[in-house]
Each structure stands twice: as C-alpha cells, then as structure tokens.
Amino acid sequence: MTNQLSSLDVAAWFIAVAEQEGCPISRLALQKLVSLSQSLYGYDNHEKLYDEEVMAYPYGPVTEAVRKTYGDSGDSDIHEPRTELKPLTEEQLDTLSRIWGEFAPLSPGNLVNATHDMGPWSKYYREQGPFRPIPWNELVEAWPGYELDAETRSQTASDHTPGNYCKPQENEGMYDELFSRARRNARVLTLS
C-alpha cells in the first residue's frame, strides 16, 4: 500500500467530518467506526487499512492508539482531531465514506450492540482481562454481518455523505471525483 494509515489517522477523518457536519462524535462511537473501517477495508481490498490490532474491550472492538488518545468509553464529544488529516487513497476514502454513511447515524449504544451481536468480539472478550486482539481475518469475515445489522437498525435513508470539507488543501482538485463517487455510493441509515 502506498498510503498507509494509522488508526489515529482514521479517527482524525471521522472527527473532522463529524465536526463539519455539526454532530460531534463520542469517544465510544469513534472507536466503533475506526474498528468497522478495518473490517470493511479488509473485506473490499484484502489488506489492512491500518497495521494495528483491534482489541476486544468491554464496549466492543477498540484500537489501543485511539483508546489512549481519546479515551476508552463514554459519550463525551470530541470536537477536534489530535493528529493532522492525511490525504486518502480512493479505496480509503470509499471505505471511510461508507462507514460514515452507514454507521454514524446509529447511537453509540446501537454501535456497541452491533459490534457485540455480530462479528468475533464475544469470542475474544474476557471480562477479567487481559484484553485480547481480534484476529484481522475474523474481523474482515464479519463485515457482511455488520452491514446487515446496521441496515436492520435503520428505518429511513437520507444523505449523510461528507462533503468537500475533508479534502486535503494540497492537490485539491484531485479529490473531486473521489468525493463525487463517495456521495453516490454512500448509504445513510437514520434511526428515529
């Protein structure tokens, strides 16, 4: 991969998009979106989005870097990323846009339920610790279930796709087609 991201890079993108849309993201929701991004990206591209383990914590899958940087639970809102936004490849942008469109409208509690009800979290979580990693291949195999679960938790679709605000400033025109395609592909699920 030519543009390797970290889980903090992924988190920064979601935080920036959430803030631009006027809906700051909670720590709990952020961790779920970052983990779900690893699942979808692996499913679509057969490689890791970021080279970090996703761990089985009490409220679902978490990366250590995001947990240490933004906290490990709770609904307190995050208003700005603590790392710089990185330019994204077309595949990375597609993945993050889809995750935002399908899962951002879910409440943090529904995100926790989605990651508990579907996927390998329960197989690796131990209440007494130590917290264990969820194997990447199992996280990837769980993607269709995660997506189906998000669809069943929704009632209506609306456009919740990020706009031009998350474009890197340099090479600005280079991203126009990527955002256009992301807008066409993103599905948003809004709960009542």
Rank of each mutant, 00 (worst) to 15 (best):
P105Y: 05
E172Q: 11
L30V: 07
I25A: 05
Q31G: 12
E138H: 03
N185L: 15
D77W: 10
P61W: 00
V112A: 05
Q128I: 13
E170R: 05
T152Q: 14
H46T: 10
D77T: 12
D94Y: 08
A186C: 14
E91W: 03
R27V: 12
T95H: 03
D9I: 04
Y165L: 15
W100T: 06
A182P: 04
I15H: 00
T63C: 05
L85D: 02
Q128T: 12
D176Y: 13
T69G: 08
A18F: 06
S6R: 10
S107K: 07
T161R: 09
P144D: 03
Y57H: 04
L36E: 02
T69K: 13
N164D: 15
T89H: 07
Q92E: 07
L106W: 06
K167W: 02
D176L: 15
V188T: 15
Q169S: 14
D117L: 14
Q4W: 08
E84D: 09
E177T: 11
P81D: 06
W121H: 01
E21C: 09
F14H: 07
T115I: 08
Q38H: 08
H79R: 14
C23L: 15
A182H: 01
L5Y: 03
V140E: 00
L93R: 02
H160K: 13
K86Q: 05
I25D: 03
C166Q: 10
S76A: 15
A29P: 01
H79D: 11
P168W: 04
A16C: 14
P108K: 07
N45D: 09
Q128S: 13
P162H: 09
Y146E: 00
P87G: 02
M118H: 11
A114V: 09
P144M: 03
E19I: 08
S192V: 13
W121P: 00
L40H: 01
Q92A: 08
E90I: 10
T2G: 06
D9W: 01
R67E: 10
W100H: 09
Q38C: 04
G71T: 07
Y43D: 00
E91S: 07
W100C: 00
Y43S: 05
A12D: 01
A150D: 07
H116E: 05
D51R: 10
K167A: 05
A142F: 02
S180T: 14
A150Y: 02
T83A: 05
F131N: 09
Y165A: 15
W121V: 01
V54M: 03
S37I: 10
D159F: 13
G145N: 01
R67P: 06
N164F: 15
S7N: 07
K86N: 03
V112M: 08
